[in-house]
Design a protein around this nucleic acid. Structure first.
Lengths: 345, 345
DNA sequence: CTGTTAGCGCGTTCAA
DNA sequence: TTGAACGCGCTAACAG
């Protein structure tokens, strides 16, 4: 067990000096001493004892990454390819900054608070936290906090969040669908509550409709069940001609792909019989045929940005915008067909 | 900061007593004292300081989960839906046992060793570690170790591993493909090195061929590039009629789906023009049309089993089989077509 | 530039 | 059944 004291003894210096070398406090160590100490550090494969560090300095260099439960399907959060992509990004960034990542899944705010105290977490990244719970956590801790894909409209004080420009995404896709001549359109998503990504995307769609003097209201917002069987039952509604709707706008690629697949299996062709759009531009959307017209988001960037903000917070630097909305862009592929007489272009 | 000392003061007892209550050492605490202390513990929301615990007892209750780099595509490991599923399982199990999970991505054994020392890790789960590196890690630490999907043929002493019965999987799928009348068949995988999952699956296939007096050799083992463009170039080879091969056996659903999608886009139908099989039975295989005939593995179970073994090791209990091979099963769906004259049934 | 010293919070003797 | 005392490895004053 190569400890600082041990190294100090071997180098014939004090423990403080070794500590100073370790922390690069060169103002307090001579070049000679530094090199000598470093050589021994290296030879003995010195590894710090983080327990002692936590105790002495009251911080751990651990970033807690909390996944709030079940954002989509009725399974472990992490099964969603989105979660794993963003987790990959967050892990890489945290490592790059020389921090450690403690992963935890929960839907209980007290667990989060306890974890933070127990481990003296330096910071926390919280994914998909309901706004109200997010506020509670924020208020009961001093630990720097960054939320991902959460919504905090009207929160009393700033909750740092990295999300998406959901509104523009909804607006872009609806504008496109409308430009292709579709009028009988529905929006399909998990969650109708406001505020929230799904709701905001819907509002974006609505704006596109309203700008054209059309209405887009609650009846055109279909809630998708968390249960796959239930969803399949719903998709049956989109089979048959003439179709009740000419375009289905999903708020997530996952469901869009599921629907395309289901429809194909039941003889309904996309886009010939019905047009479909997604949101996210994940791996599914490119793998399915027809490839999905969707809204692209840069998931890796989202994770990276969240950690970047957290590091600013940890270092006490000022963060200008509490609510970052990453840009999105329309990706036109093959799942939307023009309706005769549409104002193309 | 509710510390043990603090709680002790409030309860009018000593710190040792509080510690005993905390650890359920009821033989050393009276019922009255216990209740009084617990009430205060609760009211003050006592949370242990793990730093102090590490220092005092030299273990952290942290399990390190190490993802070795890039098992498949040329991206972050975690983007693969497989990684996220198994990580979800591991996270849930670790939490269930009351441990903490530190996630780390690397391909450097020294980093793993350092991490373990720095944090006094109680155990490690290592995913996709090359056998040779695995041995090095195993030898340079006392920390309990469980590998996932690694291969240790001929290791000098036992490396605990949870894997799949890859051989039977390969055998099952090849037997099926042969029974459907296919003879011009190839196996497509990443890695030709032996030992390894891909190689073992191939060997399973070969056995099925040999049992029928057919040969299946190296020329029928095609290595898939890590680069998508390169793979697409390869897939072109399977377009056109008469086809060079009537069946393509992929060692992973991901690639099988990619190929099906590519072929569909180029007018080659699966299974009418060419049959395709996968391996894993992941979400892709059910979402694509035709749905994939593949080999099912229970990824969640794999993660669960790994943690279970690790807990046994941590508690010093004996683990009988060092190399667990989880069962697989053939899942027949729609991506393989019978060749005229095949011995069906 | 270098060394000494006093804790950080908890577990674990050992003594009462 | 309870308590006092020590040490784990490190950091941060402070003194030289």
């Amino acid at each position: 067990m190569a400890t600082i004291k041990e190294i100090a003894r071997k180098a014939g210096v004090s423990a403080t000096t070794v500590s100073n070398v370790l922390h690069g406090r060169m103002a307090r160590v001579s070049q000679d001493t530094k090199e000598k100490v470093e050589a021994i550090l290296d030879a003995d494969k010195y590894a710090p004892n983080m327990g002692a560090m936590i105790l002495a300095s009251n911080n751990s260099r651990i970033i807690g990454v909390i996944m709030f439960m079940k954002p989509r399907r009725n399974e472990t959060v992490l099964e969603d390819p989105f979660s794993s992509t963003i987790l990959g990004a967050i892990e890489a960034e945290i490592r790059r900054y020389g921090y450690f990542l403690m992963l935890h899944t929960t839907s209980d705010e007290n667990e989060v608070i306890r974890l933070s105290k127990t481990w003296k977490l330096d910071g926390l990244v919280l994914m998909w936290v309901p706004g109200s719970i997010g506020c509670v956590i924020r208020k009961s801790m001093e630990t720097p906090l960054v939320f991902v894909d959460s919504y905090f409209e009207g929160a009393s004080y700033p909750c740092f969040n990295v999300g998406l420009d959901d509104f523009s995404g909804g607006y872009a896709i609806a504008t496109y669908v409308l430009s292709m001549g579709h009028r009988r359109v529905v929006f399909l998503a998990n969650d109708k509550v406001y505020p929230g990504s799904d709701r905001t995307r819907f509002e974006g769609c609505r704006r596109a409709f309203e700008e054209r003097g059309l209405s887009f209201n609650e009846e055109q917002y279909i809630i998708l069940s968390k249960d796959a069987k239930e969803r399949h039952k719903l998709y049956r509604r989109f089979i048959g001609s003439p179709p009740e709707f000419t375009a289905l706008m999903f708020s997530a690629d996952y469901y869009a792909v599921e629907a395309v697949s289901f429809l194909a299996a039941h003889g309904t062709r996309v886009p010939e019989d019905v047009s479909v759009t997604g949101f996210d531009d994940n791996i599914f959307s490119r793998l399915i045929r027809p490839q999905l017209t969707t809204v692209h988001q840069d998931v890796y960037q989202k994770g990276k940005k969240a950690v970047e903000m957290l590091m600013l917070l940890i270092n006490g630097e000022s963060v200008v915008d509490a609510d970052v909305r990453l840009p999105v862009r329309l990706v036109v592929r093959d799942s939307v067909q023009a309706i005769a007489g549409a104002d193309l272009g």
